[in-house]
Amino acid sequence: MVTNPPIIFSTDTSELVKKIITRYPEGRQKSALLPILHLAQAEFGGWLSVPVMDYVADILNLKPIEVYEVASFYSMYNLKPVGNYVLEVCRTGPCCLMGGEEILQYIEKKLGIKAGETTQDGKFTIKTVECLASCGTAPMMQVGDDYHENLTHQRVDELIEEFKNC
């Protein structure tokens, strides 16, 4: 039987959470919600399940609904499971001028999934995002912390190959 690991931050993350809360005045710990949701998403599998959000609510002494409404407002929080590599392809005007839509189609075809979907092996998710302030090096996508700019078919091939072998 597969059991879900308990939802509890590692010691390091717990320390970081404590440190983040000190950035705000007494009683304003709700301000830590966005940064802590990022930590939670990174630590608990790349997305925010209801139990994870409830856990964050508990830490910050908030009502669960206060966490749900924030998590659903911001596009960086994933409310369903995602693949190991989330390819966040920019689809806004300036990228489109430089072939962004075509690059998106190319990635979709290559991975056999549409934007918003995850490959069956759980490796890749394609997500469309809005302008990431990289329009001078369009078309572009973000994967994890990294921006991949001036994308061409060849560059996309290389990157996907690289991720597959990781």
Binding site: R23, L34, P35, Y74, S75, M76
Partner: peptide, 12 residues
């Protein structure tokens, strides 16, 4: 003076 970095989460 304290300066803190606050992270957004994707919202224009």
């Amino acid at each position: 003076l304290e300066i803190y970095v606050q992270t957004g989460a994707g919202a224009y």
